[in-house]
Design a binder for these strands. Structure first.
Lengths: 211, 211
DNA sequence: ATCAATTAAACAAACGTTTAATTAACTTTG
DNA sequence: CAAAGTTAATTAAACGTTTGTTTAATTGAT
């Protein structure tokens, strides 16, 4: 369980992430992971200690923390509060799309997972991110640009819910809009633009006071 | 595998739904289910044929079909198209909240599931529901009340994504708004109202043309 | 006496983890 | 600079459980 960054460790981590996202944690055996990675089964215990701890390692390496992004945003005087929120929203779209496999795992594990270490990890990240976002919201309210009553967790719920649910409907969405001819990169680019524009409309309606 | 509606069959189905929603399909053993239901393990094969088919039975009994609701809505001349969409949205909030356990299962299985029967089942329901909803949208567009370009799957993605993601954040949301003192029924009522109002704002922004 | 419902026991297969042995990579030493 | 010694990396095999399903026997009602 010694080395922190070896090629085989990373190989196991990537393979496990892929298989967990395709078949779930309990649907994937350590033999599956080792075999597909071309590495001996015992190496999982050797590097991570256990299958559970391998999962924890995935969460530690892939979880999304927006505090730094928010700090930069708050300092940037060239952007009004709504534009700051637009940038933040794009950050979520970008990062979640960038880490599709992990966020599919996250989607399942938030329902199923019983591991107290992961539960604690997610609770901390959620609280921290929410409190950072609240800073931006309060700024907008102070400047009189946002409504006084904004249900921020509800708004974030729609942000993450919309992006996450798109992750499970990717193929359906692609087929509906006849986008199968596009390359993966083209489709991804198109989709991110659509998601971004769509959620901007939503955020504007939630945040700013108009009839 | 004979009887379609016996007390023990329903008992197994309910217990399985609960355990699958708490621990996932692969995280739940047939012994778990049988033991918690107080029924012999072999009865699962007897009634359903297999664990897989038990899961299929859950999907058959709990999936949400909105066609009837939409048909009623389309006929109702006392409602304008936006109000029809509001009613439809409330139907989704109501039904998903009513079937929390099943929709937690659905959330995971849409990512993980490999069972072709369930995949086919979900694809059919999704297409059917979407085409029904498209009828309402086209009506609104015909009357000049809705935008000409509406990404209906994207809109539905936000609807279902918002409600579903709330299902995994219930406790967090309750704690954030200090709603722990409420009874379960009171909280559920409050939450449904909040969800409904929130999504109405979103739908209005997506559907109607304003700056 | 017949047939459905129910049971405990047994089945092989798959599970996560550990073991003890072997190989590979360095370090130390003469 | 090679040989010996030392530690880390890697392996195949085995461990004891648990898995979903089936079996063959038993119960209960008609």
């Amino acid at each position: 369980m010694k080395p922190a960054y070896s090629e085989k460790r990373l190989q196991l981590l990537d393979t496990a992430e892929r298989l967990f996202s395709e078949k779930g944690f309990d649907g994937t055996s350590v033999r599956d992971i080792a075999e597909e990675a071309g590495i001996n089964t015992a190496m999982i215990s050797y590097y991570f200690g256990s299958k559970e701890k391998l999962m924890e390692a995935i969460f530690e390496e892939r979880s999304l923390n927006v505090r730094e992004k928010v700090d930069l945003l708050l300092k940037d005087d060239s952007l009004d509060p709504l534009q700051k929120m637009y940038r933040l929203l794009d950050e979520y779209v970008e990062k979640i799309m960038q880490r599709k496999k992990f966020h599919r795992i996250l989607l399942c594990e938030q329902v199923i997972n019983q591991n107290p270490i992961i539960i604690e990890m997610l609770a901390k990240i959620k609280s921290r991110n929410l409190s950072s976002i609240n800073d931006v919201i309060r700024l907008g309210q102070k400047k009189g640009l946002f409504k006084k009553q904004v249900d921020v967790p509800m708004m974030m719920n729609t942000l993450i819910g919309t992006i996450s649910h798109m992750l499970v409907n990717l193929d359906f969405y692609k087929a509906y809009h006849h986008l199968e001819t596009l390359t993966d990169e083209e489709f991804e680019k198109t989709l991110k633009k659509k998601l971004s524009a769509h959620i901007k409309i939503i955020f504007k309606a939630i945040l700013s006071h108009e009839s």
